[in-house]
Structure formats: C-alpha cells, structure tokens
Amino acid sequence: MAPVHVATSAGQYPIHIAPGRLQHVADSVPANATRLVIISNPVVDGLYGNALRQALADLNKPVFTIIVPDGESFKSLDTLNTIYDRMLSEKLDRRAVILALGGGVIGDMAGFAAATYMRGIRYMQIPTTLLAQVDSSVGGKTAVNHPLGKNMIGAFYQPVSVDIDIHVLRTLPAREVSAGLAEVIKYGLILDRAFFEWCESNVAQLVALDADTLAYAIARCCELKAQVVSADEKETGLRAILNLGHTFGHAIEAGLGFGTWLHGEAVACGLVQAAVLSGKLLGLSAADIERVRALVRAIGCPDIAPDLGEDSWLDFMQGDKKTEGGEIRYVLLPAIGQAVVQAAPLNLVQETLSETVGDIAIDRSAVQTRDMTATQA
C-alpha cells in the first residue's frame, strides 16, 4: 500500500501501512540518528519489543529500551519524569531518535518527551492499538494527563514517520478493538458520509479483524486525518472537528477515573451524546441519531453514559480544550458526514444528559479477549 503523507509546517512525513511493517521499521529511521530509544510498556514490549530490536539490529546503532507502567492512569508528569531521568542518565544527544512502541498512552508520552527533551528531538510512532493507528499516532498531538483534565499538558510535535503493522492487531483484546473502531466511525460522521455507510455495511468484518477490511479502514482514516492536519496543524479551526464525542468522552474518563473506561469506549458513548445534542440544536434526524447509536452498539461499545451527576458533568466539560471564555463548545453534526463546532444552550445540554445517562457499567462478561496476555497491546 502506498504511504499516506501528512503535510505540516516542518515538511511532510509518511504513514506506512502494511502487514508485517514492524520488520521494516529500520527503513524509516533517519540516517544520521546517533542512538535509538524504544519507549514501551511491559505488555507490548513482551509481545513486540524483541522483534523491533531485531529489525533495528542491521543499522548498527546503539538501542536501549525504557519501560513505563501500563495504562491511562500512568500517563502523567511523574511517569514522564522517569523517561527524562533515563534519557539524561544515558546522555542522549540531539540526534537521538525515540521510537514509541505501543498504544495512545505510549505515543502521547513518548512524543511529549521528544518535544521537550533538549527542546526537541526526533521520534517515530509505531502504534500497536487500532485507536492509535487510526487516530492518536497521526497529527503530532502529544500530552500527559492532569487530575483536573485529560491531555491538558502537552505540545504539537510531529513525528518523522508513522509505521503501522496490521498484524499486531491480532493480539488485541476484543475490548481494545471496539474502542479503536469508535475512532474509525468518527471519521465517517465528521467528514465522509460514504465511509460511515461503508462502516455500517462492514462492521462485522471490522470487529472480526478481517485484514483487507482493516487495511482499507485504517488507510481511509489516516487519509482523512492527514487532510485535516495539513489544513490546520495546531487546531486553530478545522482540526477541532476531530474531537467529535470527546467533550462528553473526556468528562466520562475524568469522572470515572482515567483507565476505568478505555478512551475509545468513552468517545463512542460521547458520539451518541453528541448526536442527541445535534438533533436538539441542529435538527439531525432521529433516524440518523439511531444509526449512530446502532453502530456504536454493533462495535461493542457503550451507548449509555455513567451518572456523574449534572454538576460534575458540566465541571468536567468546562475543562475541555475547546472551551472559550468559559463557554463550552461542542463538535456537532448538522448531518452525517458534516461537522461544526459551536456552543449549545445549557437547557439542551441538560436534556441531552438526562436522556443519555444511566446507572450502568460495562458488562465485562460479554467482552472476551483474543489473547489474555495482551491486555493493553
């Protein structure tokens, strides 16, 4: 498959998408790199770390690995400091290159470490979750969480490449696949009605990780995100539409505690809530709202939000990065395939919460993993 290219203020970088791409990552390493630093977590390193180190061996460059704890709750300044400690103790220079091997948590932290170490060194994204492959690894958003808000401390900092190996998804738990598919259908909702309809028609193959179906979905999502990032690299306008479902979703994550729901699960539920609010404010049809809800259910994600309490919901959403002058701005859908960012009257938000919130929890018994050793690959 031909690479997808992302144009940024610093130039272009490629997204390589292929089964077995992990074995060819060395092709993306800058020729003048002095040392290579793999940042990963114990689960992913156990699955793919040796394969990556072997793939890099022919470069004859020093390689060392930093292992950080697994999970969203460790995406913090404390964990980031352990990365700095190791890089400083190894006396890395400005031509060192970081390789982020993992899901969105690893990609975000490794990217932020790259953006801030010696005021910026190069890094590569090697995403191992579906969510990271279609969304967080592309576009240069790097960050850590704060107890008062998700991704509130970070930087826009682009990688030199993104290398996506479709084969690594075979070790993902089904729950992680579902969470990633939430971001896939998001792209159709905001930018491409035909792609949303394709997702509806191919949802069974997506959930089953059919290789050809996945390859098309990943490539299309990367193409759509590349278009948006190239037009608005630092989210001064258009790029904000990529946050459909995230204002509600981030409130769920913060309200329940980071890591209780997966990011994609919270976003999926937020997609439903955003659709309901869109119906009230912009006239999105009841039939289209139901299509969003049905597809969220079909990928195995929750469509009913937890009861955080109305005041808590509003407090957490107030901390969203799209808030301006104290006014919460939502990504909404005039129609499937179109998105706008605007404020909403409080009474309509309250109505939306009353209709989409319930006393619920994810049914863990219904979520079977494909590989119980790969809980956060």
Score class of each variant (00 low, 15 high):
6 V>H: 09
11 G>F: 03
13 Y>V: 03
14 P>K: 08
21 R>H: 00
23 Q>W: 02
26 A>P: 01
27 D>C: 08
29 V>D: 06
31 A>V: 07
33 A>Q: 03
35 R>L: 07
37 V>H: 01
43 V>H: 15
45 D>W: 01
48 Y>H: 12
50 N>Y: 00
52 L>C: 09
56 L>P: 01
57 A>H: 00
58 D>L: 07
60 N>V: 09
71 G>I: 06
72 E>R: 07
73 S>L: 00
84 Y>E: 09
88 L>G: 13
95 R>D: 15
106 I>L: 14
114 A>S: 13
121 I>T: 07
122 R>G: 04
129 T>P: 01
138 V>W: 06
143 A>P: 02
143 A>T: 06
145 N>Q: 09
148 L>I: 12
153 I>L: 14
155 A>E: 02
155 A>S: 15
155 A>F: 13
156 F>S: 11
156 F>G: 12
157 Y>D: 04
160 V>G: 08
160 V>P: 02
161 S>M: 07
163 D>T: 08
166 I>N: 07
167 H>G: 04
170 R>C: 05
172 L>S: 08
176 E>P: 05
177 V>Q: 00
179 A>Y: 08
183 E>Y: 06
193 R>P: 04
197 E>Y: 09
200 E>N: 06
200 E>A: 03
210 D>Y: 05
212 D>M: 08
225 K>I: 05
228 V>Q: 04
231 A>W: 11
235 E>I: 04
245 G>F: 11
248 F>S: 01
252 I>S: 09
254 A>I: 06
259 G>L: 03
259 G>K: 07
263 H>T: 02
268 A>N: 00
270 G>H: 10
272 V>W: 13
274 A>H: 10
278 S>I: 03
278 S>D: 01
281 L>D: 03
286 A>H: 01
288 D>V: 04
292 V>S: 11
293 R>E: 15
299 I>A: 13
299 I>Y: 14
301 C>K: 12
302 P>M: 03
310 E>K: 10
311 D>E: 13
314 L>F: 05
318 Q>I: 11
320 D>L: 13
322 K>G: 10
330 Y>A: 14
333 L>G: 05
343 A>M: 03
344 A>N: 14
345 P>W: 12
345 P>T: 10
358 G>N: 12
358 G>P: 11
359 D>W: 01
362 I>Y: 03
362 I>M: 13
367 V>P: 00
371 D>R: 14
372 M>V: 12
373 T>S: 15
377 A>H: 07
377 A>I: 11
